[in-house]
Design a protein around this nucleic acid. Structure first.
Lengths: 104, 104
DNA sequence: TAAATATATTGACATTTATACATATGTGAA
DNA sequence: TTCACATATGTATAAATGTCAATATATTTA
């Protein structure tokens, strides 16, 4: 089977569940903004993101944890601070899609 | 400003609202499956999609209308049947992202 | 150990959303 | 107009989610 045919194979129900879960997680303005800011600024602390978004710290922390739980983000602790960063390889592509849309 | 810099401009709150609304709409297994099937098969009737997904007709009709309302799908009536089809230009790109993920 | 700072967790409430079912609307053929 | 079929809409209940305040945990410094 050629590569093009492979790419157009029908998605399994399992994959649909997984992918829709991803989209659902991005289907919230603040969560999408957090991902976008991490794409622009690289690893950032919870308070840094709270200031950039103007949201309360517990709210930001909660969403960052949920994004991490789904495999979209990672985190590392440095002293008192926790830096979050993108880990899922497709996120920059999705964000570029969104940026393209905003230019049209 | 270079094209690369344009592409990395920070998204407006308006755009974040709009884009997260799109992702939210795709954040449901059946809605994502409907979009995927329309990408694979081209324009398809409501009953056709109900059979392909195994879901009840009212459920499929409801979701198709919501996808259309957000500008992701279009429809045309031919006699008794209504054909739905993709209209948003970024959907095939997003679906290819998902298909790529399922191969890794 | 105590205090200060950064982050994570919990609980309560309102709102939204999913789901299933019944039914209404619209179309073409008899 | 009446019937049969395709689609759309409405309703009710259950489940999931957002939001925010209070509080707990963890780390560093005094």
């Amino acid at each position: 089977m050629s590569k093009a045919q492979e790419q157009k194979a029908r998605l399994s129900l399992e994959m649909l569940e997984f992918a829709s879960g991803m989209f659902k997680m991005l289907g919230h303005p603040l969560r999408l903004q957090l991902v976008e800011l991490l794409d622009l600024h690289g690893p950032t602390t919870v308070n840094g993101l709270a200031e950039l978004t103007g949201q309360a710290q517990p709210t930001v922390s909660l969403y960052l944890n949920r994004l991490k739980g789904l495999g979209l983000l990672g985190s590392r602790r440095e002293g008192k601070e926790t830096y979050y960063f993108l880990v899922h390889p497709k996120l920059p592509i999705l964000l570029d899609c969104v940026r393209d849309c905003s230019l049209e």
